[in-house]
Computed example of a mutant assay.
Amino acid sequence: MSKPRIAIVVGSTRAARFADAPVEWIAKIARQHADIEVEVVDLRDFPMPFFEEVASSAWVPSENEVAQRWQKKVAGFDGFIFTAAEYNHAPTGVLKNALDYAYTEWNKKPAGFVGYGGVGGARAIEQLRQISVELQMAPVKSAVHITLGDFLAVRQGEKKLEEIDHLNQAAHALVNDIVWWASALKKARDAEVVEAEAEAA
């Protein structure tokens, strides 16, 4: 079996975004696992309009070319870690939009979250967990919550994320959960394909 491929999805596209710091940090931790492949996926590279298709791609193929490219990209991964900025107690609009532009490509794959904001992005992450369940993903229990004090210290250059012990403990727990679930669910999906091919033969 090939190694599970994990995407670190940059969930904000603002010019002044904070997301790049946690993305670089969590990707470095994830790459310490020799049994997975890790790729950073930036939503800036997939400038999809706010959802305007006839219906979800679960029912009707998307017409937008960027959306088609996005779906193909998502399909190539076995698990996802999303950065989750919290705006007005919710995740970013661009991340929700990206989630909406795919469906089957998310199915039966784990999702984890690195949140930041006043309460560590906790409210945004809880909403994202509900959304991921509807997309037939498997949201993991562990998460990273970068609360305001740590956020400001990192943003102002007073600290680095790798220097904050409790965040590093949470990050390692999150990555370990994603690795376990990505491997288990990949085996199950691969077995389904083999079974379907056998039945069709």
Rank of each mutant, 00 (worst) to 15 (best):
A85P: 14
D78K: 09
G118T: 09
G157F: 03
P4V: 13
F82L: 02
A102R: 02
V119P: 13
F113A: 05
A19R: 00
Y116C: 12
L99A: 11
L161D: 00
R14H: 15
S62F: 09
T13R: 07
V66T: 05
V193Q: 08
R69M: 11
A173I: 13
I29G: 06
S62D: 12
I8L: 10
A90G: 14
P110C: 07
E53Q: 13
D35I: 12
D177P: 15
L99P: 00
E86C: 14
T104L: 15
K28G: 15
I36H: 06
V10K: 06
I26G: 14
A27L: 08
P4Y: 11
G121I: 15
M137P: 08
I29V: 14
K159N: 01
P91E: 13
V154S: 13
V9E: 05
D190I: 12
K186Q: 11
P47F: 14
H33P: 13
K160Q: 11
D20R: 07
R189A: 14
F151T: 02
R189L: 14
G115D: 09
A122M: 10
R44H: 10
A55C: 14
V9Y: 00
D150Q: 11
I125C: 00
K3S: 06
S57W: 02
I164S: 05
E37I: 10
E199P: 11
A75L: 02
V144H: 01
L148P: 01
G157N: 07
W59N: 11
L135H: 11
Q71H: 07
V41G: 08
